[in-house]
């Protein structure tokens, strides 16, 4: 992405929610929070899906791991969410590596169904495990922050400032994720992931341990999902199994990635920025009023998705943006 566009995007991301907040539209700030959350999940999923080319339908399991680990530590040990973030990410990476290693001997669709299998097994465990309170869910302890510093350390923000504060929290995490993933993309790991995607046997022939690097790729995805899960838990103030294991945590990032353009670092961001507001807008307009509850908004949403897929199966980044940009600049001169 050209530096100019990147700077503009960063500026918009930083400044946009402030007028919304001031004008009292904190609902839209929450939408912005969801956009960044899903963009973050999208770039995370892109590592296993877009770079390493493996069908992963169950990354939401690690979203749940992150949410639960941080929530448990907060409930039982009164630990700060930031320490919970470290622990949640660490736990997700370890669990992901242990679970993914055996299934990497499966290829293609068989691997994909194995990731679904892990999710399907996680659901009843989440619903019945007493340690995490089963389907009754875990509630984070409520206590007002003692000051601005405590608010940041314990992620407790009073009243109307909550939406804005959490927006910046997720924005910071997202920025860190982007920087780290950009480093991964340009390192040996990034090269090896794409080599495995393009030709697994060819990759093994030049010394790449495909199973090991698939595990690493999926663990990176798991780490990103877990980090997002931790923030989500403290934002929602409660963790329910059916909520954190919801299929949408897997499909939305996947959809954002495909809409934007799979494999490129920025594809999922473009996709999330488009998809989430559209779905929220649909919900707020068509989903309200006399037709509320009849799913009209989601019918239209489905049609939009199908149209994008049929017209641009390789994502919106596959459009000739660069040429358009050049033409635009040329005209101005």
């Amino acid at each position: 992405m050209p530096a100019l566009a990147l700077a503009a995007a960063a500026l918009i991301a930083l400044a946009l929610p402030i007028p919304l907040q001031v004008a009292g539209y904190s609902y839209f700030v929450t939408v912005a929070f969801l956009v960044i959350l899903n963009a973050m999940l999208g770039v995370g999923w892109n590592v296993i899906g877009g770079w390493a080319g493996q069908f992963d339908f169950g990354p939401n399991v690690f979203f749940a791991v992150g949410a639960y680990v941080a929530a448990l530590l907060a409930v039982h040990l009164a630990l700060s969410p930031w320490l919970g973030l470290v622990a949640g990410v660490g736990a997700a990476v370890v669990i992901c590596a242990v679970l993914t290693w055996p299934i990497t001997q499966l290829r293609g669709h068989y691997f994909a169904i194995a990731t679904v299998a892990i999710w399907m097994i996680a659901q009843p465990i989440g619903a019945t495990w007493e340690l995490i309170n089963g389907s009754r869910g875990l509630f984070l302890p409520l206590r007002p922050a003692t000051g601005p510093l405590d608010a940041v350390v314990s992620l407790r923000f009073p009243g109307r400032s909550k939406a804005l504060a959490f927006y910046y929290v997720i924005l910071v995490l997202f920025a860190v994720t982007l920087v780290l993933l950009r480093m991964v993309d340009r390192s040996k790991l990034g090269f090896y992931f794409r080599a495995i995607r393009d030709d697994q046997e060819g990759a093994e022939g030049i010394g790449i341990d495909s199973r090991l690097y698939k595990v690493i790729a999926r663990s990176i995805t798991a780490a990103v999902f877990a980090a997002a899960g931790v923030v989500y838990a403290f934002w929602a103030l409660a963790v329910f199994p059916e909520q954190v294991l919801d299929l949408n945590w897997s499909t939305f990032p996947m959809m954002a990635t495909v809409v934007g353009g799979i494999g490129s670092l920025w594809g999922p961001v473009v996709g999330a920025v488009l998809l989430i507001p559209i779905s929220q807008l649909m919900g707020a307009t068509l989903g309200a009023g006399p037709l509320a509850g009849r799913g009209i908004d989601l019918v239209v949403y489905g049609v939009i998705i199908m149209l994008v897929a049929a017209l641009r199966p390789n994502g919106l980044l596959s459009l000739p943006w660069r040429a358009w940009g050049r033409r635009l600049v040329g005209r101005r001169r």
């Binding site: 794409r194 995607r197 022939g205 030049i206 010394g207």
Partner: peptide, 18 residues
């Protein structure tokens, strides 16, 4: 079995990373 969606340079770099 060239890595079709990678550039020529990136293909050879994959080997060099060994």
């Amino acid at each position: 079995r060239a890595f079709g969606r990678m550039t020529v340079l990136d293909n050879v770099m994959c080997g060099a990373f060994g």
